[in-house]
């Protein structure tokens, strides 16, 4: 058991193995390969670029701490994305209790700080997504953009799967209404 059992269970990605063994440079390679997708996820969920930067850092620090629990049963990308969603939603729950700062996240201007303004069509949808109420935005991003199932979302967000479905349809209706104006 111990190190060998953990290592033998996974796709032998040498970079991943080295990072698991505690090599920060190997972890840096993983970071650079995944940071774009994790930042996009954090930005869309948080709706605020500065907060998304903080969350992205937290995600990778947490991933480093938890790397030994990754057994290679799922793809590393899947594991990392679930961990990221968990970090963002946990932060939101505690932050909401601490202060009410997430009232500010429906501000589309805050979102655009992190987006290249030259991307015309995408920007419209991005801005519309950032205007969604938090519950609807969370489900829309996780289901339609990230591809999680309602059961997975229910599990991660601690809501009923039926609530997740209802929020998704609500989000889509709002988005379509805004985009067709």
């Amino acid at each position: 058991m111990g190190v060998h059992e953990i290592a033998s269970g996974m796709n032998a990605d040498p970079g991943l193995l080295a990072a698991q063994a505690g090599d920060p440079d190997a972890f840096g390679t993983l970071y650079h390969a995944h940071v774009g997708r994790i930042f996009a996820l954090c930005l869309r969920l948080a709706g605020d670029s500065r907060r998304a930067e903080e969350l992205t850092q937290d995600v990778f620090v947490r991933a480093w701490e938890r790397l030994s629990s990754f057994r290679g049963e799922s793809a590393f990308t899947t594991w990392l994305h679930r961990l990221a969603v968990n970090v963002v939603l946990t932060d939101r729950r505690t932050a909401w209790r601490r202060s009410r700062r997430f009232e500010l996240t429906d501000d589309p201007a805050a979102f655009e700080r992190g987006v290249d303004r030259s991307e015309g069509v995408e920007l419209d949808l991005e801005a519309a997504i950032s205007r969604l109420p938090e519950g609807a935005r969370t489900v829309f991003v996780l289901h339609d953009v990230e591809g999680f199932t309602h059961d997975e979302i229910a599990d991660m967000a601690r809501i009923a799967a039926g609530t997740s479905r209802a929020q998704l349809f609500r989000a889509r209706r709002l988005l379509r209404g805004w985009l067709e104006r």
């Binding site: 940071v35 774009g36 850092q57 290249d116 995408e122």
Partner: peptide, 12 residues
């Protein structure tokens, strides 16, 4: 939608 977006600064 772009699947990846670079953070404004280097976070590494």
């Amino acid at each position: 939608l772009p699947r990846r977006m670079d953070p404004p600064g280097d976070l590494w």
